[in-house]
Amino acid sequence: MSIELKNVSYLYSPGTAYEMRALEDINLVIPEHQFIGLIGHTGSGKSTLIQLFNGLLKPTGGQVFYNGEDIWGGDVSRKDLRSQVGLVFQYPEYQLFEVDVFKDVCFGPRNQGLDQEEAKRRARAALEHVGVPEELFGRSPFELSGGQKKRVAIAGVLAMDPRILILDEPTAGLDPRGRDEILRQIRALHETRGITIVLVSHSMEDIARYVQRIVVLDRGHIAFDDDPRRVFSHYRELEQMGLAAPQITYVMHDLRDRGVPVDVDVLTVEEARDNILAVLKGKGAGHAT
């Protein structure tokens, strides 16, 4: 269950005055069971890339494979592909339309041709998975808060039982509480259902905390594709791409530059705290003896 992109490029409005190159020569493998962060400046090609994964866009050059099969090769059903590779867009307002939450989540499974009972079972499971309480099932999706809408939108895709779930900025516009809850639930999905997650985000702090691998896009090219520690060690290059490492990375580098031998690879506040304490205490103990 992997996605593979080979020499993929994408041009908008090819052959016209508005021609614009969004992606160029992208080679990328998304294997099973990974939690991947996709970052890039606005206009770096992120949105184009995720739409290539599930065949919403057709590459203007190169090939996209799902399980080794070229998805534009002829006998691949892209409708089936889209239920295997789920994509949740940034604004839940773009997909919520039914009279109540439960019916809305049933939309995907019904489109897959599942019978009423199975669709309902899937919808219920998906809603539970993202933490939407049962008393909201009968409510209109338009009355929900931003965070709840986002969960229902995710459930709407999750109910199709995808093997790969791509989330475009799932935390945009949420307050810290809502954001942490959603991210924790996404991580739980990854852990319990074994779903591959591709998380598109602007927040380096979120990415650093949750993902196993980071893909950095810069002006249509893959700039880095590595584990978070190594990607953030390029924090100066990231800045030139209009991105930044988590604040913590900067603090640790500044300390190191000022002669405090801390570990510059830490990713979270807790790790940083422990490391600084250990270094400072070690030093203090050194003075005492």
Partner: peptide, 15 residues
């Protein structure tokens, strides 16, 4: 109060 405390502040507080 559900606010997003910057990492620097959190780290200072933790230390």
């Amino acid at each position: 109060y559900g606010l997003d405390v910057p990492q620097v502040t959190l780290l200072a507080h933790g230390l």
